[in-house]
Design a protein around this nucleic acid. Sequence first.
RNA 1: GCCGACGUAGCUCAGCGGUAGAGCAACUGAUUCGUAAUCAGUAGGUCCUCGGUUCAAAUCCGAGCGUCGGCACCA
Length: 650
Amino acid sequence: MPAIRLPDGSTRRFEEPVTGAALAAAIGPGLARAAVAMTVSGKLVDLSSVIDADSDVRFVTRDDPEALALIRHDAAHVLAEAVQSLYPGTQVTIGPAIENGFYYDFAREPPFSPEDFPPIEEKMRAIVAAKEPFDREVWEREKAIRFFEEKGEKYKAEIIRDLPESETITLYRQGGWVDLCRGPHMRTTGDVGTAFKLMRTAGAYWRGDHRNPMLSRIYGTAWRNQKELEAYLVMLAEAERRDHRRLGREMDLFHLQDEAVGSVFWHPLGWRLYRTVESYMRRRLDAAGYQEVRTPQLVDRSLWEKSGHWEKFGAHMFTAQVEDEDRTLALKPMNCPCHVQIFTQRVRSYRELPLRLAEFGSCHRYEPSGALHGIMRVRAFTQDDAHIFCTEEQIGAETIRFMALLSTIYRDLGFPEFAVKFADRPPVRAGADETWDRAEAALREACAEAGVTYVLNPGEGAFYGPKLEFVLKDAIGREWQCGTLQVDFVLPERLDAEYVAEDGRWRRPVMLHRAILGSFERFLGILIEQYAGRLPLWLAPLQAAVATIVSDADAYAAEVGRACAEAGLNVEVDSRNEKINAKVRDWSLRHVPAMLVVGRREAEAGTVALRRLGAAEQEVLPMAEAIARLAAEATPPDLRRSGPQTSACA
RNA sequence: GCCGACGUAGCUCAGCGGUAGAGCAACUGAUUCGUAAUCAGUAGGUCCUCGGUUCAAAUCCGAGCGUCGGCACCA
């Protein structure tokens, strides 16, 4: 005799166990029509589930935000049914709901191509129109395995075999089609609605393991209604417009070409942006007690063997041989071992700790061809790297310092929000388990001390230590790790770093590997996308254009240009024989943040018409005032904080 | 690296066995104009590369390289 409490605080009692559908009907016909699932004591379940104990029940309607995951999961089932009816012999595997949509992995030769989408979508719409009820069935394990094996569904059989013994095996039937699934599902395939679209195909390894066969994945997007679907497609189109690869070309920042795959050709404006960020970082590091160093590009492989990198990453390192000498040099893929060499050059005292060695370290890695992505994943890049040599007791304080530095830098650069992940020991690693226990505990405690909240990223640590990952998103929401903080007890051991402790004994320092931007290349890519190219004045490589309306103003425009340059602003004078409309359009398309428009009136009055990017209005100001205003705005945020400022140079 | 799609002028793209095209950009000329495209003209291409089929290949076939979307990888 269950007593069911509803969200409005009321309680309903039943003599017998009831299904969700019956409960909804008892409450009212409107709810019975609208409800597609329910939560029982917080757990999302089918409406057909039987409630047999006292519980809190809340109905989920198709308009609720949480219905999106159901719509997407159900859409994946509809896709699988459609595919199997159109392409007999195709095996099904898994098909979850994901952000913005769903996918389903099929085993089929040849793989699906986008040309297959129209018939599949048509079939899916027919299945939705048929409103096939989702029926949940509990099966006996061996029977389920036999059932799928007899159908030739070896992947499904394998999934069931690998499920823990305690797991209830449930199958969902929709019309004549049946799939292994944990559920829950909505009432019928009709609840999926029609606001879905197949997006793209992709190869994906079975169970995410590259040693397994590759399956054919179909991605789709699904929404509650057509309006949401269209809004999503519009958002994708807009994201394409702020793709850093496109903006890099439009703003003339950089290019890539086949002769130097994975390496960036920085153009004058792109390099200016790079230098602005680099100068800013250098000031911040100087102020934070780091000492900048510079270490070699080519280092004998023996050092990488000692550090353990050769064994783990040797195949991904660029090497060089010289004819006269019998040795192999490697282009450094990272800076850590080099920084340890500086540490170990002389006897170090505990008094020197924490010793913070920083380097804008140019690194090369032979990244797999498929991993390359614009300037965000490249083979030649520069890390804003630093290694903090410290005692175990200093880890907490250093973490707090680092978090403070990182947060203000991210905020200054336009990222007030960022995600933190805690990546713990990977399956293949260096160092004893006790060392890992200590390292992970130290990092966890440091996070607690620093007040850092994170999500766990299990098994994703570096091979020498656990790490925090600071994650930023690109224009279409893909996540990129930028900053990192890694606790390393292993490399100091391998490279024999020691210091003399207070008691006169030799001790091993701990190494904290840390980066904030990660690499300049990746960070600048994300920065460009974050601002959609409309960089704030202090970052914008070209800060203003001085544009003439008539050629009589040419001389005055040149004068304005000189005055801007004297104020430290990078401007371009546009005296082309074009209409002002065309000039406004051209500079706007290049995302130049300000325009100083001068016509006959301004030339006579010694004023400029200041127009900000995208603004409908302009403001006529005395030249000196307009320039002073822009120069103040062009002052980097750290210099603005540090008091009265004379130089506007970035 | 794996699966798929794609590679034609600086950019966006058309052409898909029979003499390489358009718009924008560039250049020249005219126009001097008040806040997102003034008009006219000129020039610009080993159709990614290499091989093959064919009387004939941008077009068909094969290999390679690269890009894009995923997967795997990411010290």
